[in-house]
């Protein structure tokens, strides 16, 4: 096997990881750069999903079947445990998304916007006025 094919094999052989990494970066990028809170949550979800894929893809054993008992116990099975773990992680992820969206609803009501920079501008203004003002309203 020559050098190129070896590398190409490594590259394509690990294709699941490349997908995971790409998705993860996409997700993180959205979370960090996007000012819209909803999009942030979307990014967060993509980010989490990439990790789910990481788990699930590593459970796959080449040529193995689903872990269901067939007549002989000789078949090669895929590892079921990561799937189970990821089921839990999906539940966690859904809850996180739910809480995040609920928070956004409240934020929208309180700030009348879902844009990060607007909210931060409000807050900075508020803090400045707090510094100046007297604490008590007579």
């Amino acid at each position: 096997m020559n050098f190129e094919t070896q590398w190409l094999q490594t590259f394509f052989g690990l294709y699941n990881y490349w997908i995971v990494v790409a998705l993860m970066m996409c997700g993180l990028f959205i979370v960090i750069t996007d000012g819209n809170l909803i999009k942030k949550v979307v990014g967060l979800t993509i980010f989490q999903t990439s990790v789910f894929i990481l788990y699930i893809s590593m459970a796959k054993v080449t040529g193995a079947t689903a872990p269901i008992q067939i007549e002989q116990g000789t078949a090669v099975y895929s590892n079921p445990l990561p799937h189970v773990l990821i089921l839990t992680a999906i539940v966690v992820s859904i809850s996180t998304t739910a809480v995040a969206l609920a928070l956004i609803v409240r934020i929208k009501r309180a700030y009348h916007t879902v844009e990060e920079d607007v909210i931060q501008r409000w807050d900075v203004k508020k803090r400045r006025s707090e510094k100046r003002s007297k604490p008590f309203h007579e």
Binding site: L44, L54, I107
Partner: peptide
């Protein structure tokens, strides 16, 4: 204070990223 909402959201984003990192580590 309405800033509590924003603080909570920020914490949520950071916290989730942190937790997911932990998940990757464990994986």
């Amino acid at each position: 204070d309405r800033r509590a909402l924003w603080a909570s959201f920020q914490y949520l984003v950071m916290g989730t990223i942190g937790a997911t990192f932990i998940l990757i580590g464990i994986g």
